[in-house]
């Protein structure tokens, strides 16, 4: 509605009428299931995480070190050349203090989502993860952080094998 439009033409459908079955109403639930092939680069990355290590790929043409790793360099368009183990420390590239859950419900205590540029990888190469062990107000872009790994017995070859990053 606006200053010009006072009412819409047509017949308004009320919730009562829908509930009473006056109109065709279809509800359909589906479960879509996928099992993505992780491939050469991400398989190595994930098995590294299980060992508490971060692995990147280096392109010897442009000299960049890519993490998460890729088997091709998108700038040079050629296969990357070698595996490079990088540190599990880095710098906060950006962060957000999030008060919403995945389902859009509100959180009382925020989560600290961050992109962390990993030490040893090329500038701007980083991974999305959580920050912990720090007051939201104290987080700063440029802050040095380090990975807090889950216990070895709890790691499963997933990005969540790093529980979070904390101030270094």
């Amino acid at each position: 509605m606006s200053s010009k439009i006072k009412e819409y033409r047509g017949t308004e459908i009320g919730l009562d009428e829908v509930k009473a079955g006056k109109y065709l109403f279809t509800n359909y639930d589906t479960v879509l299931r996928y099992s993505w092939t992780s491939g050469v680069a991400i398989s190595r990355f994930l098995s590294g995480l299980k060992e508490g290590q971060l692995w990147a790929r280096k392109c010897n043409n442009c000299g960049r070190t890519l993490i998460p790793p890729r088997m091709y360099c998108e700038e040079c368009y050629r296969p990357t050349d070698e595996w490079v183990r990088v540190k599990d420390t880095g710098t906060v590239n950006t962060f957000s203090i999030s008060y919403v859950n995945n389902d859009a419900s509100r959180r009382k205590k925020p989560i600290l989502v961050s992109v962390i540029d990993i030490d040893g990888a090329s500038p701007g190469m980083g991974i999305l993860h959580l920050l912990g062990g720090v007051e939201p107000k104290k987080v700063r872009v440029g802050m040095k952080v380090k990975a807090v790994w889950k216990k070895k017995s709890e790691r499963e070859g997933a990005i969540t094998d790093i529980d979070h990053f904390e101030p270094a």
């Binding site: 993505w36 092939t37 992780s38 491939g39 050469v40 991400i42 091709y72």
Partner: peptide, 9 residues
């Protein structure tokens, strides 16, 4: 089924 490389690869 291609099990060794990803879609992007």
């Amino acid at each position: 089924a291609i099990t060794d490389i990803s879609t992007r690869e």
